[in-house]
Design a protein around this nucleic acid. Structure first.
Length: 431
RNA sequence: GGAGAGGUCGCAUAGUUGGUCUAGUGCGCUGCACUCGAAAUGCAGUAUACCGGCAACGGUAUCGAGGGUUCGAAUCCCUCCCUCUCCGCCA
């Protein structure tokens, strides 16, 4: 949620930047409602002050008939004004929540993801002496994926993953966990990236995979139409990322500055409806209704959050480099960063079968957009209270498996194991 | 899921014939005094949000959440959430 005070002071900018992100919001109407709301609020508070004064007059004695009559009138007036206020607020709050976070000035303006800007390229694309297969062909030939039975049991975009691919996936989680919980490794990554950030390790966490609606809405990530699954007859929505249940962990809490940054690395199964993607990425495990993901989430002060974002990106690149997967990094344009985000970076891994890079990681710079709604604050050393900042970023999803299968495939249809994963695979070099 | 007991200021607690209770006390924390320093002691302070104000400050709200009764609710009523104990069921 954006600060209404900020919107009052910067109405034109907010209108323009919202449009640059592809959101239709009527800031003029919002501000009219805001004015009306404040005027009603003032009226009500004055009436209540009169009521409080009247009660104080009685000092525990029985009220006179006149006082009772006065009180009754005040009561009725307050009730009437409150109904008017509610009517205004019912329009005001949904409108305010619709206003997207403001992209930083450095974010490239664009209307589609085609206008994302490549900022780095890493690694050599593999050259095969044969026609490379796509990951689904490799995995299905090995008996690692059963899409048909997945569809029989749960429908399209659900699969059974089996055998060595399961072990490889778990190796990925364990490898990333070891990186993220090692202060030594984090220090190395920060230094290589030239960042002056805390090297405090991440805390592993297994969060709930579902959240109440009000909580989910506070994260700004509830997407009813296209993405999020609702549990019938319950006030519960399934998470589409561990971020959705880790970010609100300090809902309604005030953290101590001394405890920051707080970094979590969390694993959950994620659920996405993927409405509107019919026919896209139907092969294999690239786009599923249910997938597994390891997510990084940081809570910081305002002045350290931007570097924290860059740090998370550096970690993403480090992890991908360690796997030996060629990738490039995109600075996402205004249309692609998402409503709660002020800036976003994607890491995309090279897929030989598609002869292109595909998204494996996202890093979101959010600022205080989530914490304002979640009421997650920091008490500074001096005693003042302000909003905390959040950052989230993918550590690994299942998608790097797609990259491994395709980039490490052999002419025989086998898959070599990236060196860093071998310790987690019983030392095996080829699957 | 069933029965019972509870949810009060960072923590622990007081507070049910409704009124001077946003709320007492202890601990913790902050400042000051005392001290060479510390402890102990004494004094003062110690929530958050919104609205108005340049500010000082003022107002309003919040005793799990929401609604109701009343001139007036932490205190009464209803719904929901959570915790604990017992039973049932299960990983």
């Amino acid at each position: 949620m954006l600060d209404i005070q900020f919107i009052r002071d910067n109405a034109e900018t907010v209108q323009r930047k919202s449009e640059e992100k592809g959101y239709k919001v009527n800031i003029g109407e919002l501000l009219e409602l805001d004015t009306e709301r404040r005027s009603k609020l003032t009226q009500i508070e004055e009436l209540r002050a009169r009521r409080n004064a009247l009660t104080a007059e009685m000092k525990g004695q029985k009220p006179s008939p006149e006082q009772v009559e006065q009180g009754k009138q005040l009561k009725e007036e307050i009730a009437a004004r409150e109904i008017e206020l509610t009517a205004v607020e019912d329009k005001f709050w949904p409108l305010l929540k619709k206003v997207p976070n403001m992209p930083l000035d450095e974010v490239p303006v664009g209307l589609t993801e085609d206008e994302n800007v490549e900022i780095r390229v890493w690694g050599d694309k593999p050259e095969f002496g044969f026609t490379p297969k796509n990951h689904a062909e490799i995995a299905e030939a090995k008996g690692w994926l059963d899409k048909e039975r997945g569809a029989k049991i749960a429908g399209s975009r659900f699969v059974y993953t089996m055998g060595d691919l399961v072990l490889l996936e778990m190796a990925l989680w364990r490898f990333a966990m070891d990186v993220l919980t090692s202060e030594t490794t984090l220090k190395k990554i920060a230094e290589a990236a030239g960042l002056q950030v805390s090297t405090k390790p991440f805390i592993p966490i297994l969060p709930p995979a579902a959240a109440k609606q009000a909580v989910f809405e506070a994260t700004g990530r509830l997407n009813r139409q296209e993405q999020t699954y609702k549990i019938e007859d319950e006030d519960l929505w399934l998470n589409a990322s561990a971020e959705h249940t880790i970010a609100p962990i300090y809902l309604d809490e005030i953290l101590s500055e001394a405890d920051l940054p707080i970094r979590y690395v969390g694993y959950t199964t994620a659920f996405r409806r993927e409405a509107g993607t019919y026919g896209k990425d139907t092969e294999g495990i690239f786009r599923l209704h249910q997938f597994n993901k390891l997510e990084m989430e940081s809570f910081t002060t305002a002045e350290t959050s931007y570097d924290e974002h860059l740090f998370l990106v550096a970690i993403q690149e480090y992890l991908t480099q360690q796997l030996g997967l060629p990738y490039h990094v995109l600075e996402k344009c205004t249309a692609d960063i998402g409503r709660p985000n002020a800036k976003g970076v994607d890491v995309e891994v090279w897929l030989p079968s598609q002869n292109t890079y595909r998204e494996t990681h996202t890093a979101d710079y959010i600022g205080d957009y989530q914490t304002r709604a979640m009421k997650t604050r920091v008490r500074r050393q001096g005693g003042t209270v302000e909003l905390a900042h959040t950052n989230d970023a993918t550590a690994f999803s299942q998608r790097p498996l797609v990259g491994i299968l395709e980039n490490y495939q052999t002419a025989e249809g086998d898959v070599a194991v990236p060196e860093v994963l071998r310790p987690y695979m019983g030392g095996r070099e080829v699957l």
